[in-house]
């Protein structure tokens, strides 16, 4: 029971202090591994691989996986809830404040400056996913390009900009990607 409680406390702390989302949880997980030995460094690497390629926020996936590994199904459930609780509380307060100050010119100005920058941040995040998806380990840049992936990417981008296909649900494109990946042995 006390280990279960420690698990919840550790993930609550992670949720409270990991600013920036996703892999920001990683240093906390490494620390947990060293401090409690709930999982090995290798298991942590596997978790990251699973967390990166299954749906859902990576931080949440990691919490479920570690919780399950240490205390079973309930462990996974409560580790995840402990992780999201701090941000849930904080954001509810921020949202209340936003309702109040949204019309304030200073706040509006601030968001006017932030929005283009966030568009740049998202482009940067897209760029890093692009590198993982289109490149593989090799000595030179040219040799590392996975041409099948580049071709599939180009086809999908063109399809996404065609009028009749634009309205399709993203899941259709994800399914096409999965099937193409299997057929092309990517």
């Amino acid at each position: 029971m006390s280990e279960f409680l420690t698990l919840c406390v550790e993930f609550f702390k992670t949720g409270l202090f990991a600013v920036g989302g996703g892999l920001a949880t990683l240093p906390f997980l490494t620390q947990m591994q060293e401090k409690y030995g709930w999982f090995t460094a290798e298991e942590l690497a596997n978790m990251i691989a699973v967390g990166e390629s299954t749906p859902g926020p990576i931080g949440v996936n990691m919490a479920t996986y570690v919780g399950f590994a240490t205390s079973g199904i309930l462990g996974g459930l409560f580790a995840t809830l402990s992780l999201v609780l701090p941000s849930l509380i904080i954001i509810l307060f921020v949202a209340k404040a936003m309702d109040k100050y949204q019309q304030n010119p200073l706040v509006q100005n601030m968001f006017a400056f932030m929005r283009p920058a966030v568009a740049g941040l998202i482009a940067a995040a897209g760029f890093s996913v692009l590198k993982i998806a289109l490149l593989h380990q090799a000595d030179t840049f040219l040799a590392s390009i996975s041409w099948i992936a580049v071709a599939l990417y180009a086809v999908l981008v063109v399809l996404l900009h065609l009028k009749p296909l634009k309205k399709l649900h993203p899941i259709v494109f994800i399914a096409v990607g999965a099937v193409a990946g299997i057929l092309l042995q990517m």
Partner: peptide, 21 residues
């Protein structure tokens, strides 16, 4: 293989979103 394909599809989706954004 499926996940390799999914990653490419996700990239294409993000690209389209970024362009719109």
């Amino acid at each position: 293989h499926a996940f390799a394909g999914i990653r490419v599809a996700v990239c294409a989706l993000i690209t389209a979103s970024v362009v719109k954004l």
